[in-house]
Structure formats: C-alpha cells, structure tokens
C-alpha cells in the first residue's frame, strides 16, 4: 500500500495485516467487536476474523489485560485494547506488577510479548476522567516500552514493531489524531523502537515533542520561521527507551531547547528529558531550557478552558521567543 489514509485506518490496516499473517495474533478489549471499537479502529475486523480472534470482553480491565499477559506467556501474540488510558488505571496492577516485572523476577525465564493499545490525550471536551495524558507515567517503568505514534506512517509501523517485540509494548494513540490523513507506505522499513525522528530541520532551537503535540509544534515552527527563528522539531516516537543520541546531537547543533508535552509538568517526561540534557549536554546550552506542558489542573470540560489548559501553537511561539531572547 502506498496511499493517503487516516490514522485510524492505518492502525486498523496494521492489525488486519498482522492477523492475516500470524494466527497467534488476536485482538481483545471492550467493544472491539460488535461495536467496532470505542474509536472505531477495529470496525469490520469481527466480520473478517470472527469472535474467536476479535474478542469483546466484559468491563474487566484488570482481568483481560492480565489475560493478555497469560496468553502471551502461552505463545500467543495478543493485542489488548484499553478504551482509554484513564481506564488502564484499573489494569495497572497487571501492567506494572506482572507484565513489566516477569522477565526480571523470573531471572530471564519468562518474557511477555504483549501489545497494549490505548487512547490518550485531551481536546474533545471529555472532562477530567477521559482526557489525560499518562504515557509519561508509564515511561517511568523499567520493563515496558512506550510508543507514541504521531504520524499515519507510525500509526501503522508501531503496531508491526510492537508485535515483533518480545517484551510488553504500550502504544498510546492520541484521540485527536484518528481522523488525520497522511501517506502510508507499507513497503518502507520502519524506524525501530527507541529511535526519534527529526521532522523539521532547524538551527536555532531544538523542539522535542511527541504524539498530537507534534502538529502544534510544526505549526508553531512555521509561524516562527516567518519571523526568522528556525526550529528543529524532534518527534520522540518512543518515550521508553528515549533516544538520547538524537536529542543530544540536535542540542549540540542548536544550543537551545524547548519541550512540548501534553502531560503535566511535575515528574513528567519533559522533566526527564531536561534532566538528561543537563547530565549529558549541559555545556552545549546557551540559554535555560523551556517547556510547554498541560497546566496542572484536571482537564476541564468547557471548550475555552480545555484549550487554555493544553499546549497550543501560540504558547509554543511565545516560549520560543523567550528562549531566543536569552
């Protein structure tokens, strides 16, 4: 395939192809079958693969996520869909205490080739229990790999990469991206897990981001370029492992850094990235690093409040100018 499709279609296509190729792959989660997926990702898959491989589960996040771990131990390649990251908190025991720990606890005997996909992020006025970005939290946990596809190509590639990985991989699909259109080329060799991608070359500031914020960052970069500020935009793609090398190389070139992260500031992945730059490239910096994050409040419902809480292109532009003044 080499065509323009939506992010949603790209994820679906990847799952479909994987299931056609490998009998061990199956999808389970709430409403993935008859309903077609909470965000319509799995629409049509039940008809093609049947209810034994597209499994509608009860509202039992902990049990079906744990069942994914057990099935992975038993030789299957399960894809567990958790409707949104907020509900994954009910499965945190299984994700952290079991999936992430088993390989180590068993002295290397039991790896868990499990893929968990979930929806993350705000912007749809869904309030404080359906809009948070907790992928940075998950990136805290050794034993997990945390992927954040932003582009249509990555929406496809990351399912494939995750299924090929011997360890538990969590994929965070941002709710605002599903209708985005982009080019998917299924013939290109995907950039591996743990590799960031420079989405825009620039010389003045390194802007590090991931997920839906990538597009706000690119929009801001365009605005700034009209004003003579040249931004290099890095899409992290993977929050664990982090691609220190790509980050530090860019910092060594631009000497200025800003991070855009839809998580809250305190204890966030943006804080981690700043700490690493401090450790590895402190003397490269010409100015204090800056960041644009989600304000530290639970997500409000009202549209203007929600938009004020989230990172936005204008805030990114303002931050970039501030960094350039120093």
């Amino acid at each position: 395939m080499n065509s323009t499709i939506t992010y949603r279609e790209a994820v679906r296509h990847a799952i479909k192809q994987a299931m056609e190729k490998d009998q061990r792959v199956f999808l389970m989660g709430e409403d993935v079958g008859h309903y077609g997926g909470g965000y319509a990702v799995s629409m049509g898959l039940l008809e093609q693969f049947g209810s034994e491989r597209i499994i509608d589960t009860p509202l039992s996040e902990s049990a079906f996520t744990g069942a994914g771990i057990g099935a992975a131990l038993g030789g299957m390649r399960p894809i567990v869909e958790i409707m949104t990251v907020n509900f994954s908190l009910l499965a945190l025991d299984q994700i952290m205490n079991n999936a992430a720990n088993l390989l180590h606890m068993s002295g290397g005997q039991f790896n868990v080739p499990l893929v968990i996909r979930m929806v993350t992020g705000g912007g749809k006025q869904l309030g404080a229990q359906h809009s948070h970005s907790l992928e940075g939290w998950y990136a805290h946990i050794p034993g997990l790999k945390i992927l954040t596809p932003a582009t249509v190509q990555d929406a496809y590639d990351m399912v494939t990469l995750a299924l090929a990985d011997p360890d538990p991989v969590l994929i965070f699909e941002h709710a605002m991206l599903y209708n985005n259109k982009g080019l998917l080329d299924t013939k290109v060799i995907p950039l591996s897990i743990g590799k960031a991608k420079i989405e825009r070359l620039g010389k003045d500031i390194t802007l590090i981001t991931y997920g839906a914020s990538l597009f706000k960052a690119l929009e801001a970069a365009q605005t700034l370029s009209d004003e003579g500020i040249d931004i290099e935009v890095i899409d992290l793609r993977s929050l664990r492992p982090l691609d220190d090398e790509t980050i530090m190389k860019s910092v060594a070139k631009t000497h200025r850094v800003m991070i855009v992260d839809e998580g809250w500031k305190s204890g966030s992945i943006s804080a981690e990235i700043m700490a690493r730059i401090n450790e590895q490239a402190f003397y490269e910096l010409d100015a204090p690093m800056g960041r644009v994050c989600t304000l530290e409040v639970p997500m409000p419902y009202a549209a203007h409040l929600e938009q004020a809480v989230l990172p936005q292109a204008d805030k990114i532009v303002a931050m970039a100018k501030k960094i350039m003044e120093k």
Binding site: F26, E52, S62, A63, F64, T65, G66, A67, G68, I69, G70, A71, A72, L73, G74, G75, M76, P78, D93, Q94, N97, N98, L102, M105, S106
Partner: peptide, 23 residues
C-alpha cells in the same frame, strides 16, 4: 510464580488457559 499481589495471578492464569483453548 510466585505472584505476590493478592489475586494478581488469576488474570494471567485465565490468559494461559485462553491460549491453550485458542491453540
């Protein structure tokens, strides 16, 4: 295991049995 979270092993056991059934 050896699972030290009370009830933590049950969901995994379910998955193991599911894999046996599917295969």
């Amino acid at each position: 295991g050896g699972i030290a979270i009370v009830t933590g092993g049950l969901p995994m056991a379910i998955g193991m049995a599911l894999s046996d059934k599917m295969m």
